[in-house]
Design a protein around this nucleic acid. Structure first.
Length: 643
RNA sequence: GCUGCAGUAGCUCAGCUGGUAGAGCGCAUCCUUGGUAAGGAUGAGGUCACCGGUUCAAAUCCGGUCUGUAGCUCCA
């Protein structure tokens, strides 16, 4: 008998050689039906793999990330099995489970496959499911593996095998399809009740653009048909929140071919929104001791040669601007820090002056590859809510905490709750590729980790992800379609102070080198607004929205009264517009609802007589009549609650 | 940058295998002056992204370019 320990700490005894499926059956019928794979001593395995000695066992279902992984990974094999039957001779790259579904990278050889073929492929997949094709695992020798795929002519699998050692190679067979795979997998295809191919996209073999491009087939599958339907509805809903669509509908921003791709133009309403965000941050920064500065949009090339950016990124950036003056070259500013370094250098600094916090809403220009451009989230001209903190090494942690507080205030005001934080530290095995002393790195890395601990911020630590010039802390959020974008960032920098020979006079009357912290709570105004648009679905919080209300006169007779009311509300620091069209009130309400104005103020004979407005809240309906003063009070109270 | 897909009115889109353009919304004018999610009539508006080719004839077929889009790669 062996002891099996469960995640809750309980222990049961079983015969040696018991399988996870047996264990599930011994617990309950339902569990046995739903279990997908099992985690035995921290390794996920198939349900038929015997357990021969004492172990901890966690039975994995659809509700466990790892259970889903097994499910989708097997679905990828189902896809491959179907594709190989439909397109004999195709070659297979990798086919993993991903965050939402799975994909398989395929070399389709001479076959032309398009999304029109999806139904056919899905149909074949479901036929294989119904056939209850078992999936069997087999350990093979390296020689056997090489032999098999040589015969098959699959150079991709052969390349992968060449990196593996004898004794760690396994094959999985699902009917007609045999794949090199580590597993684990479902026992057979039958739990897969619904599949949907999502799209096709090119993907380089092993992500290398110099290697062949395969066709990546994205798909998703579910244990219940209903879950697939819900997922598809969710996708549709997400598309409605896409900031590119809402930006057009709400007249926030535009692009124009002649102006140039990746160069966003902010329309009046979008500008309102952005200015308000900037004013909000400026106010907080003032409280935290930042000094606002303004620097030019271009800078002498030497500035960026000194900073090192020219060497690093110059070849892939906008070409230098030349002048009639022989040999004179300027760069469109790709970042603000070198300018700020020059401000630091402009006068001698004492340790008493530090930290010096220079802030700028600085517009920068970067030549992003055309395939990378994406709405407002990836553009070639954007404005960073940038600031550089010049401080002593012993001040890093305190400054870090203060920046984290600013980010906290912002995220809270906008109810960004689903963000992820990542601490990027240097690769401990390759410290040579980083600049700065070991001592300073150790100090800064510890400062970041401690700051997160102190602020109770759950952050994932990634080694080797630090920039060459210093460790950093990034804040990431997902957009409507589940893509992850980096917003706020705090980065420690030892490189620029060195390159620009920044100094301060310490209390010991000696010269010392300050540490620089780059930070941008929003990241860029463009990207932040994009995420904000998707987060709110265009229904911005009251304090931010370009128009807080729209006055709807019941008929044209009351337009003059509406104008007087607007003036009165504007005097009370509210903002709104009037719908002066000759339309019936029902129509005006409908349009205002669709236009996402937070409040509709209806004015007719009754209200004009009483000196009130009838308030209707977007999405919630009639709230009754109130005086403009009462309305203003209600709005300001609501705003105070969030800010 | 690479690969797939797409580009028709301000917006969303229809236009089968080639026969010289349509709808809804929006806009303009007029009628209507209305009470909590679409009142009515009339009208304007398009080199069918651009350039070239095939054809008696191209929005439609072919090639190229541009732009968008899905991914890959990159990202200070």
């Amino acid at each position: 008998m062996i002891n099996i320990t469960f995640p809750d700490g309980s222990v049961r005894q079983y015969e040696a050689g018991v399988t996870p499926l047996d264990i599930a059956k011994s617990i309950s019928e339902g569990l046995a039906r739903n279990v997908l794979s099992a985690k035995v001593n921290d390794k996920v395995v198939e349900l038929y793999r015997p357990v021969n000695e004492d172990a901890t066992v966690q039975l994995l279902t659809w509700n466990d990330e790892e259970g889903k992984d097994t499910f989708w990974h097997t679905s990828a094999h189902l896809l491959a099995t179907a594709l190989e039957q439909l397109y004999p001779g195709i070659k297979f790259g990798f086919g993993p489970a991903i965050e939402n579904g799975f994909y398989y990278d395929i070399d389709f050889m001479d076959y032309q496959v398009s999304s029109e073929d999806f139904p056919k492929i899905e149909k074949r997949m479901m036929e294989l499911v119904q056939a209850k094709t078992p999936i069997t695992r087999r350990e093979v020798s390296k020689a056997e593996a090489i032999d098999f795929f040589t015969k098959k002519g699959d150079q991709y699998k052969l390349e992968r095998i060449s990196e593996l050692n004898d004794g760690e190679i396994s094959f999985y067979e699902s009917g007609t399809f045999t794949d090199l795979c580590r597993g684990p997998h479902l026992v057979d295809f039958s739990p897969i009740k619904a599949v949907k191919l999502i799209n096709l996209a090119g993907a380089y073999w092993r992500g290398d653009e110099h290697r062949p491009q395969l066709t990546r087939v994205y798909a998703i599958s579910f244990p219940k048909k209903k879950e697939l339907d819900e997922y598809l509805v969710m996708l549709e809903e997400a598309k409605k929140r896409d900031h590119r669509k809402l930006g057009k509908e709400l007249n926030l921003f535009m692009f124009n071919d002649i102006v140039g791709k990746g160069l966003p133009i902010w329309l009046p309403k979008g500008t309102e929104l952005r200015m308000r965000l900037q004013a909000f941050l400026s106010k907080i920064q003032k409280r935290y001791g930042y000094k606002q500065v303004i620097t030019p949009h271009i800078g002498g090339k030497q500035l960026y040669v000194t900073s090192g950016h020219w060497d690093h990124y110059g070849a892939d950036s906008f070409r230098p601007i030349t002048t009639p003056e022989e040999g004179e070259e300027y760069l469109l500013k790709p970042m603000n820090c070198p300018h700020h370094c020059m401000i630091y250098k402009n006068e001698p600094r004492s340790y008493k002056d530090l930290p010096l916090r220079l802030a700028e809403f600085g517009t920068v220009y970067r030549y992003e590859q055309s395939g990378e451009l994406h709405g407002l989230t990836r553009v070639r001209s954007f404005t960073q809510d940038d600031a550089h903190i010049f401080c002593r090494p012993d001040q890093v942690k305190d400054e870090f905490i203060k920046v984290m507080e600013i980010i906290e205030i912002i995220f809270k005001a906008l109810s960004f709750e689903n963000f992820e934080a990542q601490i990027s530290l240097r690769d401990p095995n390759d410290t040579a590729k980083y600049v700065g002393s070991d001592e300073n790195w150790a100090k800064a890395e510890a400062a970041i980790v401690e700051a997160c601990k102190e602020k109770n911020l759950p952050a994932k630590v990634e080694y080797g992800e630090a920039a060459f010039y210093g460790p950093k802390l990034d804040f990431m959020v997902k957009d409507a379609l589940g893509r992850r974008w980096q917003l706020g960032t705090i980065q420690v920098d030892y490189n620029l102070p060195e390159r620009f020979e920044l100094e301060y006079i310490g209390s010991d009357n000696q010269k010392h080198r300050p540490v620089m912290i780059h930070r941008a709570p929003f990241g860029s105004m463009e990207r932040f607004c994009a995420v904000l648009i998707e987060h709110t679905g265009g229904k911005f919080p009251l304090w931010l929205t370009p128009e807080q209300f729209i006055i709807l006169p019941v008929s044209e007779k009351y337009v003059d009264d509406a104008r007087a009311m607007l003036a009165k509300l504007e005097d009370m620091d509210l903002r709104g517009i009037i719908d002066e069209r000759s339309e019936k009130i029902g129509r005006k309400i409908r349009d205002a609802e669709l236009g996402k104005y937070p409040f509709m103020l209806i004015m007719g004979e009754k209200e004009v007589g009483e000196g009130t407005v009838s308030v209707r809240r977007q999405g919630a309906g009639d709230m009754g009549a109130m005086t403009p003063e009462a309305f203003a009070k209600m709005i300001s109270e609501e705003i105070e609650k969030v800010l």
